[in-house]
Nucleic acid binder design. Structure first.
Lengths: 338, 338
DNA sequence: GAGCGTTATGGGAGCGCTCCCAAAGGTGCG
DNA sequence: CGCACCTTTGGGAGCGCTCCCATAACGCTC
């Protein structure tokens, strides 16, 4: 009776025995080594088929020290993850690029403190070969922990200064400056801005671009801070209108906020773009269909996903080599709102 | 020199040595066994802290035969996964329920054939304790493979007859019948329906409900088939209008299609609900904000996620006991479109 | 046909952990 | 003071796999 305990999946050893070869040879066949005779290979393949053998990944990982799994961690709630087209686009880029690698992608979201502990030691080497981090907030301890554990990781978006992980970022500052310059050169004199969250570098950089563009024009900055959401766009627009009834342009750090602002502008009886010009940021799919259609800053989101995967691949395969950070270009898409 | 090869993470053995205890005792502390003296426990805890020890999950899984990881597999493209509020709601329910279990959630999407192979053996026991399957199409081989491998799995949505996995479903048929009855009892005489994809049971069941409700009223069915998308709603509405210019109501198997249909109706100069009543299905967030607001069938999507997790938990913990399928109730939400 | 290089093969060692058993130490009671 | 019993402990065995080394088998050449 050499049958194993109740319906455990078959092991390599059993496959080898059935094929009449040694464990080593069976392993070579499974892993596609060429140093195997055709006879042996066929025997093993047939045994695999008959037994329905699937390699035990835990056992394999234990010896190879890798898992062929990469995690994409999004530090946001499901609502934002699913609500904002941005994430869908990154994920599309990431999955496309992953299809060209031997690795499997895992998606994890973590807004909730309670989840953090579990996630955390899930991500510690031995379970994941690398991590893609999206939508990082400044106070997030994850980058530090990953660095400490030596887990290869790439960030989407530039981190604040203490984080040393490689990143792929957009030229947020340049894009914002482009937008504001467009506003000024088309004759606007009182240009306000609704910012993103200040604990995210994308938010800070877009604000910085706004300030940059104002330099030398002797315009006073006029800023309300939002959080990228449509609601915060409405709220901020209302506040702006109250503070500066004479404003004639608003640069919003996200399309969602621009949409909110336009709604509020309409409610206040201001015409877009006649009375007030509006520019958004993201070039999200909806920006094409708003009324009027939204002038906005395009950022190559899908590319970002692709580049992140490529960088992570390098990090995993050649841990010794440093990979340079990447900043992707942005450009202005002029439609009807400005 | 008993130091291990270059910067490998510390092992249990090293922790034990540093704490001056045996490997067994260290393991007991890590796993929270009570049979340990306070002195030993503290020594181990301190060593863990100092060394930054994290258990190697591959090694643990190899012996315990489980991984404390559950996968949520969505058989759709990123576009649909992120585009339809339905998925966001299920995911919310799932993550909430998972927070109460010791397990970690993994999200995977698979529309692409190429990904399938990798996913497939990723899901084979030893790497995942169980699987939650969403948005299953009839020809999907996954359920069969999971069954064959003995991987515990729960479906969201009723499968076609050959699949024997336990499921959580909505009362699609009942909800659809409710909608159509509402239409009839409010005086509509020519009630059409735009169906969902016929290779998904939700689509078939909603159509069945439509037929049921028509029985005994001597109305001829008038059906166009869509795929749940807004575009297919427009296309189908156009076709319907051509085939039966006298129609005075349309029951759509999804809110997205209802929105498409309303757009098309408006383009054709029909007023909603005056000329044509429209009812959707899903009670998605947008249905509140359409003009006119959409009468629709509510389904408890978040609950579905919760129940799926609970069922999977039972399946994993008590593999011997059968778990009964669940059908969640739906109800009509009357707004202004019908 | 002896000697050589080359290719194919079997199986031991060991990855880091949990499980379990046997032994040591401690306590209480007659 | 001795014995039985309980708590705490150490460490061997083994999970299923890959890696690697020693050996076997084969094919040449001279």
């Amino acid at each position: 009776m050499n049958r194993r305990s109740p319906n455990r999946p078959p092991t390599l050893e059993e496959v080898a025995e059935r094929a009449g070869v040694g464990r080593g040879t069976a392993s070579r066949v499974i892993n596609g080594s060429v140093q195997v005779s055709d006879a042996a290979r066929n025997a093993v393949l047939q045994a695999v088929e008959e037994l329905g053998y699937v390699p035990n990944r835990a056992a394999r990982s234990l010896v190879t020290q890798h898992t062929d799994v990469v995690a994409l961690v999004v530090s946001e709630s499901e609502d934002r993850l699913f609500g904002e087209p941005f994430f869908a686009q990154v994920v599309r880029g990431v999955t496309n690029a992953m299809a060209r690698t031997p690795r499997q992608l895992l998606l994890t979201m973590t807004h909730r403190e309670a989840d953090r502990g579990r996630l955390n030691d899930y991500l510690s080497r031995q379970h994941v070969d690398g991590v893609l981090l999206l939508s990082l907030h400044d106070d997030d301890p994850l980058p530090g922990q990953l660095t400490a554990r030596g887990v290869p990781a790439v960030l989407g978006g530039r981190p604040h200064s203490e984080v040393t992980l490689p990143f792929v970022d957009m030229d947020n500052e340049g894009g914002a400056a482009l937008a504001v310059e467009h506003l000024i050169s088309s004759g606007r004199r009182r240009v306000a801005s609704i910012t993103g969250p200040v604990d995210m570098s994308a938010g800070r950089q877009r604000l910085e671009g706004y300030h940059q563009a104002l330099v030398g024009h002797d315009f006073r900055p006029l800023v309300e801070s939002g959080d990228f959401s449509e609601n915060s766009g409405r709220r901020s627009a209302r506040a702006l209108l109250e503070r500066a009834p004479d404003l004639d342009a608003i640069f919003c750090a996200s399309d969602q906020m621009a949409i909110g602002a336009m709604t509020e502008l309409a409610a206040a009886g201001r015409r877009v773009p006649d009375d007030v010009a509006v520019i958004g940021f993201d070039d999200s799919p909806i920006s094409r269909h708003t009324v009027p259609s939204l002038t906005t800053v395009h950022q190559p989101v899908e590319d970002m996903g692709v580049r992140m995967v490529e960088m992570l691949g390098q990090l995993i395969e050649k841990p010794a080599e440093a990979v340079p950070d990447v900043v992707l270009p942005t450009h202005l898409v002029v439609r009807n709102s400005a």
